[in-house]
Each structure stands twice: as structure tokens, then as C-alpha cells.
Write a protein that binds this DNA or RNA. Structure first.
Lengths: 211, 211
DNA sequence: ATATGTACATTTGTATACATATATACAAAT
DNA sequence: ATTTGTATATATGTATACAAATGTACATAT
């Protein structure tokens, strides 16, 4: 029995991260531990922990007088894609070499759900399973450093305010690209998995940044 | 007057990170907040904050029963170099395009000190200014995401236990490579700066991992 | 008018008390 | 013998009290 405990601090972190990345707070806003603790009905301690994590991700900047919201810009998103373009293929390459049968089943399950919701045209769930596919790859490649590097970058993108305003037809293309990557990984074709992933990231970048 | 405060939590973080990465604690060791606070003579609060940051860097793993030391392996170092090989060139590329005159002066100052201590054969200072050169590049490229991505990777390498056991003659070569990168950046030759940086990372990787 | 010093309000930094979760040992039931 | 339940020790999770630092407003000197 080892259910991972979800602490208040974790919830506060998710909540604040989302609020900032979706633009609910604007760049320059000052968040103070006291006001947040009153607003959210918890003590300063979990608030503080959440703010520290947000600071480490450069989403806010902690100062002696309060936490200044930094947020995320279009340039940041572009930078993230430039970086992912260079290393996410490495994850797929390794995943193709190292994936177990259980890994493949898991990936397939995610892919099936992405297809289901794509046909059903459910943007939230599409986004959810699109994201799950990438996160699964980060784990399957069995490179903790790559996981730790890519995961926060990815999280920023999926919580970015404009992510739902994707081009029409992008969902179907994205699924097709994931399917192709999956096939390459299932076949153990590392080189192709890497190439397809680079192309996928490149296409996703164009879509989210509006060409 | 805005001297950045160095909190106890910051010091504890540095101390623990170094202790773990140099092998003072072994993988599997359990660190408890209470024992650490007694040992270090501070309360649990800053200890706790440091442990949270170490967890976020996957140097330890926080559990309900204590923090388990994960540490860093040769494979992790290899992975870090594989990743840096793919993105650190991007930093140099951008730095070459964006560097100001002040940036160049700063880089040159670091380079001169690296040369000085290389001739003096002072391993600690060589390592220090070698590191400073890279960190400066991360800042000069004006890409916060790249900085945040590369900085923790770099820090793990420089605190790694074997980093001082470099090949003889590596120090002089490393300086020469930095000089070449600097020249390319000073000349605004982004493509060459990127290429030279990739080669430099590749050489450093071979050196630290013993070919 | 400008600069400087100082009190004050507000914030974060730290310590500590209390609440809750987890693992372990061990007794009891099967 | 194995499983199950429970008491207990010990850890983290959270709340709160207090210390230290920072910025602002305002009085004062030049």
C-alpha cells in the first residue's frame, strides 16, 4: 500500500501554475504568501513550498517583498519548441531501443484514447492524451535526466493559454503523427522514431505559434 | 541596495547537493529532516526547503518516511553530456548573435583567469572558471529557458566526484577550445560558435568519462 | 528643491508546536 | 504457517509564532 500522497502544497502548486500560465495573473503582479494563504484557506507553509517550486521554474521570481509573476511569453514557447526539437527525438530513439511489451501496451492504450476523443472532438481530452503520449515516451526512454529536462518544458506548453486555439484539423494530424511514432517504436526502428518525432515537434510548433 | 539574500536554506541546499554528488552520502541512504536539523544546527524549515529542491533535481526522493538518496551515476553524467551535446551549441549560436560588448568583456575576463590558473596548474580555480565560462554563455544567449535547462545539468557535472580526475593536458585543451568559442562569438560567427561548442562538449565528455 | 535619516508597515525567513500518514512489530484468528 | 488487525514509534505535513529584512512615507537638514 503506497498510494502517493497528494499534499496541499502539490495542489496549490498546480493551481497557481495553471493560473499563471493561463494568464489569470499578469506579468508583474505581486503574490504574497499571506494573501494567498487567506484566499486559499491554508497556512503559509504549503503556499510557500508551491512558490518555491514556481520560482525554480522561473514562472515567478521570489523577492524579499513578495513573489513577482513572470509568466510565459510567446518567445518562451518558441524557445521551448526549439529545445524540444533538439532533444525530444533522443527520447524516442532510446524508447525504440528500450521499450518493453508493457510499455507498448501502455502507449497503445493512450493512443487509442487519443483517437477516440479526436473522433469525438473533445478538445480537453484530446489535449490530455496528446500530452500523456509524450510523457509516456519520456518515461519509456529510461533516461531520468531527459525526463526531468523535458517534463517541465512540456508542462508549460500544455498549460499555455493559447494551446486550445490550435488550427482546425491539427488534432487529426497530431494523432496520425503519434501513430507513426508509435509504429516506429513498436518496430524498434530508433532512427525513424527520432526523425518522426522531430517532424512532429516541428509541426506542433507551427500550429501553436500560428505558423 | 538589493543585495540578494543568501538564506540558510540556500546554504543547506548547496551543502547537501555537494555532499551527495561527491559521494559523501550513498545511494539508498535515508536523510531525515529531524536528524539533519540537529546535525546542522538549524530548524527543519530550511532543511525541508533544501530537500524539496534536491527532490526536484532527482538527487533525492522524498517519501513519507524520509528522503532517500538517489545521487548520480556515470550513466547520468553520460546522459547529461548527450543532452548538452544537442542543445549547448544552440546557446553559443544565440550568444554569437546577441552578445553585447559588455558580454564580451565579461567572457574575456573569465577566459583570462582560466588561462592564468591553467598556467599556474590550480585545479580548483581551473574548474571554477571553466564552469563560469559555460554559465556566462547560458546567460548571454538571452534564452531563459535554455539557461534553466542547462544550468542544473552543468551543476551536477561540476560537483560530480570524479570531475577533478581529468586527463592530464585536458586543462590546456579546454582553455584552447574556450578561446576558439570566444573568438567565434566575438566575431559574431554563430554557426562556427555552435560547431566549436559541440566539439568542446564532445571532448569534455570523453575526458570525464575516461574515453 | 534635494538629499538624508528614521519610524513604521509589510513581507519573507526561521523556529516550533501540533496533526496526520507510514512502517514495523506483534498478537490473534484462521 | 499465514493472514489480519492493532498499537506504537517515527517520519513528514501543516499551522502558527516570532525574528529579520525591505520599502515607503515623512520629517528634517542642507
Amino acid at each position: 500500500m503506497e498510494h502517493k500522497m497528494v499534499s496541499i502544497a502539490d495542489q496549490i502548486f498546480d493551481e497557481l501554475e495553471k493560473a499563471i500560465l493561463t494568464g489569470e495573473y499578469e506579468r508583474g503582479d505581486i503574490l504574497t504568501e499571506i494573501k494567498l494563504s487567506e484566499k486559499m484557506g491554508v497556512s503559509r507553509t504549503p503556499i510557500r513550498e508551491a512558490l518555491r517550486r514556481l520560482d525554480q521554474e522561473r514562472i515567478i521570481e521570489n523577492t524579499a517583498t513578495g513573489a513577482k509573476v513572470i509568466g510565459i511569453t510567446d518567445k518562451d514557447i518558441a524557445d521551448i519548441y526549439d529545445i524540444r526539437l533538439r532533444i525530444e527525438g533522443m527520447a524516442s530513439f532510446l524508447a525504440a531501443q528500450r521499450r518493453s511489451d508493457e510499455d507498448l501496451q501502455r502507449l497503445k492504450g493512450i493512443l487509442d484514447l487519443q483517437e477516440f476523443y479526436t473522433k469525438k472532438d473533445d478538445p480537453d481530452q484530446i489535449k490530455n492524451y496528446d500530452s500523456e503520449f509524450h510523457l509516456a515516451l519520456y518515461q519509456i526512454c529510461q533516461c531520468p535526466t531527459l525526463l526531468d529536462t523535458l517534463e517541465p518544458l512540456h508542462r508549460k506548453v500544455i498549460k499555455f493559454r493559447k494551446v486550445s486555439v490550435a488550427h482546425p484539423g491539427r488534432a487529426a494530424k497530431s494523432f496520425a503523427e503519434h501513430k507513426a511514432i508509435y509504429d516506429a517504436i513498436a518496430a524498434g526502428d530508433a532512427i525513424n522514431a527520432e526523425k518522426l518525432t522531430c517532424e512532429h515537434i516541428s509541426n506542433a510548433r507551427k500550429s501553436i505559434l500560428g505558423e
